[in-house]
Design a protein around this nucleic acid. Structure first.
Length: 862
RNA sequence: GCGGGUGUGGCGGAACUGGUAGACGCGCCAGACUCAAAAUCUGGUGGCCGCAAGGCCGUGGGGGUUCAAGUCCCUCCACCCGCACCA
């Protein structure tokens, strides 16, 4: 028996699928559609194992759904703008475009070698003018719809990458890419008004039933809706004109207006306009603010920083108690970006306020009485009572009300007196998209001295990136370019300047899934195509995009809908987040990391360097270049084949969990492919032709095999549907093992063996498509397996006539008995009691009770 | 601190709505084939006691509900992830 030659086979079948255009699709209203999408890759240079896992999972779904009769859209593209291309330009002197397109060519070939059933006719790259011209049009449409605006604002400035970051891109006060501490700068920036959809984005999460709870929870918290009230405090002693507006009262947001009678101070953020106004004539306050800034926002600083305040001498009048005032402090724990940048402090019911009050010796008056506590003598010690469970005390007209009732009562009183109003606050901020970079989508506007911001006329789109740029000075090459930015104002014709910023690359990835529906359309999307294909039925990718990309894409889809581009509100009906690929780490005696190719296992099973030197085994960690524990997919596919790589990716570890890449694992997968080839080939040679008629009779062993076959079909189908690929793999091992041990003695046996082999081949098809195609041919079929239907299980053969029932005495297993399926309870009980092991365990006692669960268990209780 | 997750053999992991714990794979042990090796095939493999039949223990620890718990409830521990002075 010849070995399976994966190299020839994989090349042959990839060409055959290409020839037959198996994965090419068009809209077909007569068939149910299914849109499977894996997150598109950044063309960094070569594919990595994370890509292999991601695209294997997606391809299994695509091939399976196709076999089930769906019209399957499964496209691929490139997230092609971004910083690494510019870094390559700086380091290697290669143009970002050349670098990117070269990488795409390499990675496309690598992905094709995996045998993915992708409609490559739909490929897009976001750096292509034919892609970004539509994005520029969207930007202008959003501008007209009020979904894009320009604002002078404090931004997060990454001093290493020389660019602005969105709030979502700042992690622990550092840039998400560079890791450098972020600085604050004031710049005119373009913003997407994501907050217009705050409530919709939040509410719709409840409907996204096929999304992981974890992702939905993270988005909910990110949007951070809180309901409360805005209060207005009249001030005594504030400098005139501090707010720059007619209204000079201090605005404060609270979720607990019910606790207002417990207020003992107000506090301003160090960046509050009133603070700034006061600091002008108060050097001590200026010093205090500088001090607060120094402590910064790093995670440790926050945890250990004590509550500090500066007493301004200003007094705030209590809205409910005429004549009573609260001292106004500037405090280091009050954030300018949330609420109004000012608070009132109620020490009895907020821990931070309590810490602050204790430090500055302010009154602590409890106003909410816990359910079991006695009003007399109730006092707050070290812990504020923050629960909502309780009723109001020391609060005049609110006394006796439950918290839930006191909140609206307090708001009603504030509104009646003009001292406040009910309000909802969000943590979510508008999305700043201006980036001071070259390799991104140019913002299609012109700045004119006379006309202000003017859209570039549609006929002139796209605004193309200039090709002749230099990277020899830091900052934005577009701003440095000698001529590119200089244009005539489209409105008045006078000299004007282009916006030299480009869009955040997350904009590119916020609509690519919609472009795939009609990738060559003259408009951004052909309405009938996008309405046919969208939403994506199954989106697959890493958990790291739980907030950023997945929230932006949800916003964008709503914005596109508002501008008449498409009909859906949510882009991704189903989301699956796969785990990461991990590998053992190795270090030499100097502590330097070693790559898996730099070590070997010696005769004693010890890991040593190639020269036999000592190696320290480290933890199993996420594959990363810094730890050197990566394995190159191309080398694996070259040595073992794409099918083996795919099979190992799907084996053992559930796809949502992290998996460990091991040599033993990929060897096992190779062995499986060879074994399947050997066993199925042997059966194919037994003389029963494809499509041979059902024999008149089967022996007991043939029937047993047929049952296993049909149960296998049922189980594998269910496992794929549930994303339990490791379970499907296990069932396929069982089926091939059953087939390996089966000795055919008559025509019925041979027919049953062929039936099993065919079922196996079809079921394994989505996972190891080349091998399956080769087996299909060996089994004598003319057409492609990739174009064949999924097998159906015969219900009559998935149910056993005889079942094994567990027999317990007092819940402890004592025997198993064979019974006809759905036997009478009495029959089961009698058979159980007849078991010698049961009698022994009973020790001559009489059963008190016998519990019979049909087809499962008999429990004898004494 | 808040929110979420995970914990089962030497290892990865299975067990749908509570009903034979350890499917399947890896590894290991024994055997067959072979001059030998590789490959392949057959059998075994949770722990303890026992020649065996069989028995006892066992799903992070402790407690509970139930005829029956990996699965449900309470509590504690460990690790991982996310958010974090959000008023």
């Amino acid at each position: 028996m010849s070995r399976y030659n994966f190299k020839d086979s994989e090349a042959k079948w990839q060409a055959a699928w290409e020839q037959a255009a198996c994965a090419r699709v068009t809209e077909d209203p007569g068939r149910p559609k299914y849109y499977v999408l894996e997150m598109y890759p950044y063309p960094s240079g070569r594919i990595h194992m994370g890509h292999v896992r991601n695209y294997t999972i997606g391809d299994v779904i695509a091939r399976y759904k196709r076999a089930r009769g769906f019209n399957v859209l499964h496209p691929m593209g490139w997230d092609a703008f971004g910083l690494p291309a510019e870094n390559a330009a700086i380091e290697k002197g290669v143009h970002p475009a050349a670098w990117t397109y070269d990488n795409i060519a390499v990675m496309r070939a690598q992905l094709k070698s995996m045998g993915l059933s992708i409609d490559w006719d739909r490929e897009v790259a976001t750096c292509h003018p034919e892609y970004y011209r539509h994005q520029q049009k969207m930007f202008q449409d959003f501008l007209d719809a009020g979904l894009v605006y320009r604002k002078e604002s404090w931004v997060n400035w990454d001093p290493v990458d020389h660019t602005v970051l969105a709030n979502e891109q700042v992690i622990d006060g550092c840039g998400w890419r560079s890791g450098a501490p972020v600085e604050r700068r004031k710049l005119a920036q373009w913003f997407f008004r994501i907050t217009r959809f705050s409530d919709e984005l939040l509410a719709a999460l409840d409907e996204l039933e096929r999304w992981p709870d974890k992702v939905r929870t993270m988005q909910r918290k990110w949007i951070g809706r809180s309901q409360g009230a805005r209060l207005f405090f009249r001030l005594q002693g504030a400098p005139a004109g501090w707010s720059g507006e007619a209204e000079e009262r201090l605005q404060v947001f609270t979720t607990r207006p019910d606790t207002l009678f417990g207020a003992s101070f107000c506090a301003l953020s160090p960046h509050h306009p009133l603070t700034t106004a006061l600091a002008e004539s108060d050097p001590k306050l200026t010093a205090f603010v500088a001090d607060c800034d120094r402590i910064g926002t790093s995670e440790e600083a926050i945890e250990t920083a004590e509550k500090r305040g500066y007493r301004t001498g200003i007094l705030a009048e209590h809205p409910f108690r005429p004549g009573e005032t609260l001292p106004v402090y500037v405090a280091n724990f009050v954030l300018m970006d949330y609420g109004t940048g000012a608070i009132f402090g109620c020490p009895g019911h907020d821990q931070r306020d309590l810490d602050f009050a204790r430090k500055y010796d302010l009154p602590v008056v409890p106003v909410v009485l816990p359910p079991e506590a006695e009003a007399a003598g109730f006092a707050i010690a070290d812990e504020a009572y923050t629960d909502w469970d309780g009723s109001l005390i020391n609060s005049e007209f609110l006394d006796g009300l439950k918290v839930e009732a006191a909140i609206p009562a307090a708001i009603a009183r504030l509104e009646a007196a003009g001292d406040g109003q009910g309000e909802v606050q969000y943590r979510l901020r508008d999305w700043g998209v201006s980036r001071q970079r070259y390799w991104g989508c140019p913002i299609p506007v012109v700045h004119c001295q006379d006309c202000g911001v003017v859209k570039v006329p549609e006929a002139e789109l796209p605004v193309r990136l200039p090709e002749d740029v230099s990277f020899d000075q830091p900052g934005n090459p577009l701003a440095h370019h000698p001529s590119w930015k200089t244009v005539a104002c489209p409105n008045c014709g006078k000299p004007a300047e282009r916006d030299t910023d480009t869009m955040d690359t997350f904009v590119d990835s916020s609509w690519y899934f919609a472009r795939f529906c009609s990738p060559r359309a003259e408009t951004a999307m052909d309405r009938s195509a996008v309405d046919y294909w969208m939403p994506v039925d199954q989106y697959i990718g890493g958990i790291e995009h739980a907030v950023l990309h997945l929230l932006y894409a949800r916003f964008f889809t709503r914005a596109l809908q508002a501008c008449g581009y498409l009909s859906v509100e949510e882009p991704f009906a189903g989301l699956f987040t796969q785990g990461m690929i991990c590998h053992e780490t190795y270090a030499d005696e100097t502590g330097q990391w070693l790559s898996p190719e730099q070590v070997k296992t010696d005769e004693d099973g010890k890991v040593v360097t190639l020269e036999g030197g000592p190696v320290t085994l480290g933890r199993v960690e996420k594959m990363s270049k810094s730890k050197k524990n990566t394995v190159d997919p191309e080398a694996i596919i070259d040595a073992h084949g794409a099918d083996a790589a795919r099979w190992f990716m799907l084996s053992d570890s559930p796809p949502e969990r992290d998996m460990e890449w091991t040599d033993a694992g990929i060897d096992g997968a190779s062995r499986f492919c060879q074994r399947a080839w050997r066993i199925v080939s042997e059966i194919a040679g037994q003389g029963v032709a494809a499509g041979a008629p059902l024999p008149s009779a089967f022996g007991a062993e043939a029937m047993a095999l047929r049952r296993r076959t049909h149960k296998g079909i049922q189980a594998v189908t269910a496992d794929i549907e549930r994303f339990h690929f490791n379970g499907a793999v296990a069932r396929l091992y069982e089926l091939i093992n059953a087939l390996a041990g089966f000795k055919a003695k008559d025509e019925g046996d041979r027919w049953a063996a062929r039936e099993a082999a065919e079922a196996f081949t079809r079921l394994v098809g989505p996972m190891t498509p080349h091998l399956a195609e080769a087996l299909w041919q060996v089994l004598g079929h003319q057409g492609l397996l990739a174009e064949s239907a999924w097998p159906d299980a015969d219900p009559a053969l998935t149910i056993d006539e005889e079942v094994t029932v567990a027999v317990q005495v007092n819940g402890k297993l004592r025997a198993t008995i064979a019974l006809p399926r759905d036997a009478e309870k009495q029959q089961a009980e009698d058979a159980a009691l007849a078991e010698p092991a049961v009698q022994r365990a009973l020790e001559a006692r009489n059963p008190r009770k016998v519990i019979v669960v049909p087809n499962r268990v008999v429990n004898v209780v004494v």
